[in-house]
């Protein structure tokens, strides 16, 4: 699978291909942090990083496909917040932990269904539809607890607790769960028709429609799946924080998009893909952890994440422009 761009392709040692640049960035960042902080490379810290980045990874798994569709989903952080509040509410009302989580995930997935109805049936721009849906989700999340968080009685012994805090051979279960989910999604993305349709729609929606594929159904599934993973992430986050947080969404917004767009730089130059997203989540986890260890303030990490996002987006755009090529004297684009 090579992309012809007119120039003869130079033989590059496989490990130095631009598709894999991200892995080198991760290693480089690790070396820098290891040099600056002694705690960083200790196994317990590395496991902690893996545990922390897993929630984010699961949260944005579905958003990855929304971005590959060339659409956008602003609602995922607030859907996550809503799911966490719903779970906390159900638990407080005496429902078993696992069932509460299940109900919350199902209910929050309805937001995804609403988005897909708006985008597909009524042809809203996805930006506006998801801004509106996120407003609804945020308002509902606040309304459930009257604007304040709902604490949850100790969850020790439940399945969620063992997923969030448990370890197998020293590796956090949460990370293993994330890897398992990502492996399944990777096969769906690469080996099934559905995955290929997603990229085809992102490339040219009209052409896909004309070739008889049920474009609308694919798009609807993607939006619903995005909401579902956001809800799962929210429930896990509730397990981590031991409470339902109505405002947890604000911190996920930038992080989520940074992860997806950093991930788009790897493996499939310029297209969001699940394998890349996992790597992006790990890189962001390393950065967050390292910056915290070095005592960087909120604004520093905000600025660094914003710059990373811009960097990811520009690499993606430039590689796309390169593939497209230019023709004619006066061109726009």
């Amino acid at each position: 699978m090579t992309i012809r761009d007119g120039t003869a392709k130079k033989k590059v040692f496989p490990l130095f291909r631009p598709e894999l640049a991200m892995i080198w960035v991760i290693l480089g960042v690790c070396v820098v942090f290891a040099g600056m902080s002694r705690v960083f490379l200790q196994p317990s810290n590395i496991m902690e990083i893996l545990r922390q980045c897993s929630t984010m990874a699961i949260l944005v798994l579905g958003v990855t496909w929304v971005i590959s569709l060339n659409e956008i989903d602003n609602a995922f952080p607030d859907i996550a917040a809503c799911a966490s509040m719903l779970t906390a509410l159900f638990i407080r009302n005496g429902i078993v932990f696992e069932l509460a989580a299940l109900y919350a995930i199902l209910l929050s997935t309805l937001f995804g269904a609403l988005t897909s109805v708006l985008v597909i049936r009524f042809q809203f721009p996805s930006l506006i539809a998801t801004i509106a849906v996120s407003g609804l989700a945020k308002a509902l999340a606040s309304a459930i607890g009257k604007g304040i968080p709902i604490p949850v009685p100790s969850t020790a012994g439940s399945v969620i607790y063992s997923i969030v805090w448990g370890k197998v051979f020293g590796i956090p279960v949460l990370f293993l769960v994330a890897v398992a989910l990502y492996t399944v999604s990777y096969f769906i993305q690469e080996k099934t028709r559905f995955g290929q349709y997603v990229y085809a729609i992102g490339e040219n929606s009209q052409a896909v429609q004309e070739s008889g594929i049920k474009r609308k159904r694919v798009m609807a599934i993607v939006f619903i799946v995005a909401a579902m993973f956001a809800a799962i992430g929210g429930v896990l986050m509730m397990g981590v924080l031991q409470s339902g947080q109505p405002k947890m969404g604000t911190s996920f917004f930038l992080d989520g998009f940074t992860v997806v767009f950093l991930g788009a730089v790897v493996f499939k130059m310029g297209k969001a893909n699940v394998a890349g997203t996992l790597l992006g989540a790990i890189l962001l986890g390393i950065l967050t952890n390292g910056l915290t260890l070095l005592g960087a303030s909120y604004f520093m990490s905000q600025i660094i994440k914003g710059s990373l996002l811009i960097f990811g987006v520009s690499v993606v755009t430039m590689s796309k422009n390169k593939q497209r090529g230019k023709a004619g004297v006066l061109t726009y684009e």
Partner: peptide, 25 residues
């Protein structure tokens, strides 16, 4: 530079928001 508008503005907005913390932490 024709970067996608939504994502780039989210990034730039976040940088600006981070900078807003500079003045008084």
């Amino acid at each position: 530079y024709k970067l996608p508008d939504k994502i780039s503005t989210i990034a730039i907005g976040s940088i600006a928001f981070g900078m807003a913390y500079l003045f008084s932490d």
